[in-house]
Every structure is written in C-alpha cells, then in structure tokens.
C-alpha cells in the first residue's frame, strides 16, 4: 500500500491525478453500489423467487412474471396507475405553465401571491393528505362549497369508486402545480427579453411570441417537468396509502402499482411478487423517461 503510494509519488502528474481522482470518487461509488446497485440487483433476483419474507427465497425463474399476466390485482393496478399518471401529468404541465406565465407578468402583490401559491409544496404529502381528508368528509367544507352548484348535502369524495381517483388527482395536483410553476418560471426568466421584443417589433402578438419564440426555447424545461412529474406519478403511493378507504379502495380504484408493491411485500408476505411488480414498474418508468429524453434530442433551439 505504502510502496504503491510511494511509486505513485514518482509517477507522472497525469497518473497521480487519475489515481487521486479515483480515490475521491470512491465514496460515491461505494455509496451507489450499496444503496442503489445492490437493492436493484437484489430486487431483480427476488423477483425470480418465491419469497415469503418468513423463510429463505426459493428460485422459481420467471414464474412470478407469468403469474402477473393473469393477476387481477396487478392488471387493475396497471390501469389505475396509468389513469393516475395521465391525470397528474398533462393537467399539471398545462396549469403550472399557465401559472408561471401569470406570475411572470408584473402586477401589484405578485411576490406575496406567488409565495402564497407556493405554500402547498411545503408540508409533507402525508400532512396534505390528512388535511384534505378532513376537507373531503361527506358533509365537509368541500361539499359545502360545492353545494350551491350540486344541491347535494353529502358527497362521498373519497369513497365513491368513480370520484375517489379524481379526488386523489386533485389533491396531488394541488400540491405539485406550484412546484412545477417554479420550474417553468425559472425557464421563462432565462429567456432574454430582447427576443420577445424583437418578435413584437416584427409584428407578432403576445400569443404568437409565446408560441413561436418562448415555447421552443422552453423545451429543456418542458422535458425536465415531463420526466420528473411522470416518474413521481408512476411511483404514487403516499396519498393512496394515507387516505383511500382500506388503503387502495374502494374496490381497488386507488391501488397503484406502488401501493400494490407494499401490499404484496409487507401485508401479504409475497415479496417475490412484490419484487416482480417493482421490476415491471422500473421498466415502465425507464421506457417513458428514455422516450421523453429522446424527444428533447430532436430539433434544438439555442440562445447561442
């Protein structure tokens, strides 16, 4: 060891820098191996076993994956997850962009309003969930606010199979739109005002200026927002676990794949199946993210 370091001391400066560089990145590499690579590989291996947690895993090859194809709960969770992803991405992209455009304008009290708008991001999702559960009591505040329009004394926001997933989407979007608004706002701020001014001088109106000049330049921001919001949506767990009736109900309309992994692994002692669902979810997120990143490599617009 010491002789190696001594010989290192006699080596070229490039060699020395390379070795020291490796030494400096070693902690990160070790951290990555222990906390990322090892769990991923073991998850993959567990997905090929019959593992009840209570006794050692037994190798079953691809059996768990074959079983998933006819697993009613898994197939249901696939459709629930896809619905949730659509509901918590596309509206979030549009509404957060509109909010960013609004807060990009100058108006009295803008900073205060912006701060107020951002506050739903601050509490943890579990706190948000509990607050919304109270608001969504059958005769709670939300019902009272909508009573003039619906005429209903009670609305089962969380326990009606048709309404409950929409309620989850509303709660999620309430807390995520301000976050993505801030990302869009950062993107908008990075666009030089001269470009807008030039478009206006050339006869474009504000909408044309936005569509033809600003939006193309926001493409990297859009890809970032799309990727992060999609990943978060695919991994949905906390809200559904915390406030859906019976954790995923009613009738499994809120059983996302994330929740199913928890149920299979830690409630039903079916860790092999849970790992198989995790691998499928991982693959889905990977495909969607690669697709979205691929889009960003298309026609590039640069400020250079």
């Amino acid at each position: 060891m010491f002789s190696a370091l001594r010989s290192l001391g006699r080596g070229s400066s490039v060699q020395r820098r390379q070795v020291w560089g490796l030494i400096f990145v070693l902690p990160t590499v070790i951290f990555f191996i222990i906390f990322f690579l090892y769990p991923i590989v073991s998850g993959l291996l567990f997905s090929l076993t019959d593992f009840t947690l209570l006794r050692p895993p037994v190798w079953v090859g691809l059996q768990n994956y074959q079983d998933l194809l006819k697993d009613r709960l898994f197939l249901k969770s696939l459709s629930v997850t896809m619905g949730y992803v659509v509901g918590t991405t596309v509206p979030v992209w549009v509404l957060s962009l509109l909010a960013a455009l609004l807060f990009y304008q100058r108006f009295p009290g803008r900073e205060f309003t912006k701060t107020l708008f951002f506050t739903p991001v601050l509490p943890s999702l579990i706190v948000v969930a509990i607050v919304w559960r109270i608001l969504m009591q059958p005769n709670g505040l939300l019902t009272q606010l909508t009573r003039p329009f619906t005429g209903l004394g009670e609305v089962n926001w969380l326990s009606r199979p048709d309404l409950s997933p929409i309620s989850m989407i509303i709660i999620n979007n309430w807390t995520t739109i301000p976050f993505y608004m801030l990302i869009w706002l950062a993107g908008l701020t990075g666009i030089p005002s001269e470009l807008r001014d030039a478009a206006l001088v050339d006869g474009a109106n504000r909408v044309q200026s936005f569509l033809r000049v600003e939006l193309p330049l926001l493409r990297p921001t859009a890809v970032f927002v799309a990727a992060i919001s999609s990943i978060n949506a695919f991994q949905a767990f906390t809200l559904q676990w915390a406030i859906s009736p019976g954790r995923g109900g009613p009738i499994d309309v809120n059983t996302t794949m994330g929740l199913l992994i928890w149920k299979y692994g830690f409630q039903f002692y079916r860790m092999g199946d849970a790992a198989a669902v995790s691998v499928v979810l991982f693959a889905m997120i990977l495909v969607v993210t690669v697709f979205q990143l691929g889009l960003s490599r298309g026609e590039q617009y640069s400020l250079e």
Partner: peptide, 13 residues
C-alpha cells in the same frame, strides 16, 4: 382484503 373488496362491490359499487 378480498372479503372487503367483495363487500365494497356490493355496498359501494
């Protein structure tokens, strides 16, 4: 879990 799902299909659904 299965029993509760059946219950909810009848009573809620």
């Amino acid at each position: 879990d299965a029993l509760m799902r059946g219950r909810d299909r009848i009573i809620v659904g």
